[in-house]
Amino acid sequence: MTMLRHAAAIAAKDLRSEFRTKESINSTLSFSVVILLLFSFAFDPSPDMIAEFGGGLLWMVFAFAGALIVNRSFARELPNDCIDVLVASPASGASLFLGKAVACFVLLFGIECICLPVFGIFYNITWWRSLWALLGVLALGTWALACVGTFFSALTVNLRLRELMLPMLLYPMLIPALLSVMMLTNTLLTGQALPPDFSVWLRLLVGFNIMFTTLSVYLAETILVR
């Protein structure tokens, strides 16, 4: 209980800081829209093609956006050595990590909810046909990105090439989650009938989330107490 209260305090603090400066929100949002725009030059967006890999495109954008968001997560604590004060406080490493991961999740999910209609307009898709299932799948994929990303943000925060190192470590490890969420999003975006292997991908995504959330919560203290 205390752990959740501490995590909530950290998440609220991170979100308040972010909304005050809007540093990562603004840059990530404009970056995402630019990428969405660039895709239309890379190929001719016919409806058939979008039905085939719309989910993949969308998650490419979200993966880029996610790396920008999580990069700021622990970097935000660097000026004035705030991380020391947080680690010295009664909050455990696990609750610090959880709070920060939740803040990243909220930011990223918000950005996704803005990108989705933009994507729909640019590529002429009626994406809301199975809205709740789609949002559920997006939330699962976003948690995978926010959870592993925030953990790696803690892992790389003191490095010189942090901005480069983080995505390089993050993307290969996220492949199972990205693969399944792309498959699921693809289907739900265009309102196609659910394929028989639907539940396999869903189970994979949920399993990935459980596994990596457990690992991160368990190892957060090891990383934060130096």
Binding site: R5, H6, A9, A12, K13, R16, S17, R20, T21, P79, N80, D81, C82, D84, V85, L86, A88, S89, P90, A91
Partner: peptide, 30 residues
């Protein structure tokens, strides 16, 4: 740790938050 007070080289405060928000954030952890 709830009974320890820490003051390091740096001030350990968030520049973008107000004084009250800073103290409330840390206060809520204690």
């Amino acid at each position: 740790r709830a009974r320890i007070g820490w003051l390091g080289h740096s001030i350990g405060l968030y520049d973008e938050l107000t004084a009250r928000e800073n103290l409330r954030t840390f206060g809520s952890l204690y």
